[in-house]
């Protein structure tokens, strides 16, 4: 299973290096942010999935001595590892370039990880069930809903989100954090089990 994660890394090693370079470059101009970490991690996870979604690659992976459970597990564990990698690079870069070692650090890392986990929880089962092209359609749908929301319903959505992010980061109650993390972990595991179920029934 470890070799499957290694495979995702090998397949995208140029992209990884490119992302790391961009992240370091980024830190020259802006401070490390939850937003940047989230986008980079997510786009890496997505492209790992799109490389593997072709039928012939599924035939290869399933003909090698891996179980379908392991193939799914490699994506879920890989997602966390790659996110951590980018987050570490981002904050180390931020520290080296800007000398920031804010107290918020751990909280921000947790927030990025949490956001990636929530998004991945919805994305992966979707991708195992359908193909990437349907995801694009679904994304267009989401963007439409988003645009409708900010133009008609909640006009200051961005401010609300920004305020919410700050609020979460400012929260002191450890219990609340703990509770949120627990829910996210349960969501992640549930999504993992669902993906296994979908993938085990898949025909190539």
């Amino acid at each position: 299973m470890y070799s499957l994660i290694r495979k995702d890394f090998l397949l995208q090693k140029h992209i990884v290096l490119l992302y790391i370079a961009i992240l370091l470059l980024f830190s020259l101009f802006v401070e490390a942010s939850v937003y940047v970490g989230f986008i980079f991690s997510l786009s890496f996870i997505m492209s790992a999935c799109s490389l593997d979604e072709k039928d012939n690659i599924n035939i290869l992976l399933n003909s090698l001595p891996y179980t379908r459970k392991e193939i799914v597990a490699s994506k879920y564990i890989g997602a966390l590892l790659f996110t951590l990698l980018f987050v570490i690079v981002m904050y180390v870069g931020d520290f080296l370039v800007n000398g920031n070692n804010g107290l918020l650090l751990l909280k921000e890392v947790m927030l990025i990880l949490g956001l990636v986990m929530i998004t991945t929880s919805f994305l992966l089962p979707f991708l195992y069930k359908f193909k990437m092209q349907y995801l694009h359609m679904a994304m267009v749908g989401v963007v439409v809903i988003y645009l409708l929301t900010i133009s008609f319903f909640i006009k200051n959505l961005h401010d609300v989100i920004r305020a919410l992010t700050l609020k979460i980061l400012a929260l002191q109650e450890i219990q609340l954090y703990f509770f949120a993390m627990l829910i996210i972990v349960i969501l992640y595991i549930g999504s993992w089990l669902l993906s296994i179920r979908i993938y085990e029934r898949k025909v190539f």
Binding site: L11, N56, I59, L60, S63, L64, P65
Partner: peptide, 14 residues
């Protein structure tokens, strides 16, 4: 699967 080798009609490589 450790003991099987496979050759398919289609391209199965990246």
């Amino acid at each position: 699967k450790q003991r099987i080798g496979f050759v398919y009609d289609e391209n199965i490589f990246y």
